[in-house]
Lab assay of single mutants.
Amino acid sequence: MQRGKVKWFNNEKGYGFIEVEGGSDVFVHFTAIQGEGFKTLEEGQEVSFEIVQGNRGPQAANVVKL
Rank of each mutant, 00 (worst) to 15 (best):
M1Q: 11
M1W: 06
Q2T: 15
R3P: 07
K5V: 10
K5A: 09
K5F: 12
V6T: 13
V6Y: 00
K7T: 08
F9C: 02
N11S: 09
E12F: 13
E12T: 15
E12L: 14
E12D: 11
E12V: 07
E12M: 13
K13L: 14
K13M: 11
K13D: 06
G14S: 05
G14H: 08
Y15T: 04
Y15Q: 03
Y15E: 03
Y15N: 03
G16Q: 00
F17N: 04
F17M: 04
I18M: 03
E19R: 13
V20A: 12
E21N: 14
E21T: 14
E21L: 09
E21I: 15
G22I: 10
G22M: 12
G23D: 15
G23T: 13
G23P: 12
S24H: 13
S24R: 14
D25Q: 07
D25H: 05
D25L: 04
V26R: 03
F27Q: 03
V28I: 08
V28R: 00
V28A: 05
V28Q: 00
H29C: 01
F30R: 14
T31R: 08
A32E: 07
A32F: 05
A32W: 02
A32T: 05
I33F: 05
I33G: 02
Q34A: 11
Q34R: 13
G35P: 04
G35F: 07
G35H: 07
E36A: 11
F38S: 07
F38T: 05
F38Q: 12
F38A: 05
K39P: 04
T40D: 05
E43D: 14
G44W: 05
G44I: 01
G44Y: 07
Q45W: 10
Q45T: 09
E46S: 14
V47A: 03
S48W: 07
S48P: 01
S48H: 10
S48D: 13
F49R: 00
F49H: 02
F49I: 05
E50Y: 13
E50W: 11
I51V: 14
V52A: 15
Q53A: 13
G54M: 03
G54H: 15
G54N: 05
N55H: 15
N55A: 09
R56S: 06
P58N: 12
P58Y: 07
P58D: 09
Q59G: 03
Q59H: 11
A60P: 01
A60F: 01
A61C: 10
A61T: 07
A61D: 10
A61G: 10
N62S: 15
V63S: 01
V63G: 00
V63T: 02
V64S: 11
V64A: 10
V64E: 12
K65S: 11
L66G: 13
L66F: 15
